Amino acid sequence: MKKNQLHDYLFQNLQESNMTFEQVFEHIITFMKINPDGNYRLMVGTDSQVHKSYTVFITGIVIQNEGKGVWACIRKVIISRKMTQLHERISLELSLTESIVSMFTEERKNQLINIILPYLYQGATFSMEGHIDIGAGKRNKTSEFVKEMVTRMESMGVEPKIKPDAFVASSYANRYTK
């Protein structure tokens, strides 16, 4: 991936389309500043859907102030072939999640943490999660990939979440893959 391609990423939600990552980040800052004493979870996750001649990947970014609302957006990527190999698809889902997570640099994460910092003793919190659309259950076809994918998320310093806790990937992003 070319270095400047990161700036070509475009995001959308029901209110806005063609948002750059910078604009998404500004929305997150604005959302957090409304209640700087909140309990924030920044979650990124990707889901995919194989269609007749292509595969759709949706990456969701969700900032949640627990019990007080969310702001969210998605990024859509279309691969012009049917990706039938489950491991390849899960791996690409995670790569797309990782590419967004990596845009939240230490500097950016610190900007977000600094919003809640004065309110830590009043109970304000901030965490970042990578939601992976896989499950560990014995009957789950993706269970054999859990260790590999969880390790990849952990290596980025992000808390991995798998089903049923990976709702950004399995519910929010999933809605837009159809």
Rank of each mutant, 00 (worst) to 15 (best):
D133Y: 04
G67C: 07
T84R: 09
M1H: 14
F11G: 04
T125M: 03
L94D: 10
L92Y: 07
V50R: 13
T59N: 10
I90Q: 02
A169Y: 01
A136G: 14
I63S: 00
H131E: 09
M83H: 04
M128N: 05
L14C: 06
K76Q: 13
M153W: 01
I79R: 05
P36C: 07
Y9D: 07
Y121Q: 06
D37A: 14
M19D: 03
A136L: 08
L86M: 15
M19L: 15
P36I: 11
M19K: 15
E93L: 06
Q122V: 08
D165I: 04
V70Y: 04
K178I: 08
P160I: 00
N110Q: 12
K33V: 05
R108M: 03
V70A: 05
T125F: 03
G69M: 02
M156P: 12
I100S: 05
L86H: 06
I115H: 14
K82H: 14
Y121G: 01
Q5E: 11
M1F: 11
E22R: 07
D47W: 03
K76S: 04
I74V: 11
L112I: 02
R175T: 12
F21T: 00
E106Y: 04
V56D: 03
K178P: 12
G38W: 07
E93Y: 03
G67F: 00
P160M: 01
G135E: 06
I162E: 08
S155V: 00
P160T: 00
Q85A: 06
D133H: 02
K147E: 12
S127C: 15
V56C: 02
V158L: 00
R139M: 15
E26Q: 15
K178N: 09
I29V: 13
Q49M: 13
V150M: 06
A169F: 01
M149D: 12
S170I: 08
K68V: 08
L94K: 05
G135I: 10
A166W: 08
V44E: 01
T30C: 15
I79F: 06
S171P: 02
I61K: 05
K2Q: 12
T55D: 01
V77T: 12
I61L: 09
H51V: 11
Y9E: 07
V56N: 03
K109S: 09
D133M: 03
D37E: 13
N110I: 00
A169I: 01
Q64E: 14
V62F: 09
M128W: 04
I63H: 11
N114F: 04
R81K: 08
L120A: 14
V158Q: 01
K68E: 13
S171I: 13
Q5M: 06
E98H: 11
N35A: 10
E93F: 01
S48D: 01
G60L: 10
K33T: 08
E98Y: 02
S80G: 10
I90S: 01
G67Q: 07
L10E: 03
S171N: 13
N13K: 05
T105C: 09
I58C: 06
S127K: 11
M153S: 08
M1L: 09
S170N: 14
L120Y: 15
S53Q: 14
L6F: 11
I61G: 09
T151D: 15
M1A: 08
L117N: 09
G38R: 07
S48A: 14
D37L: 07
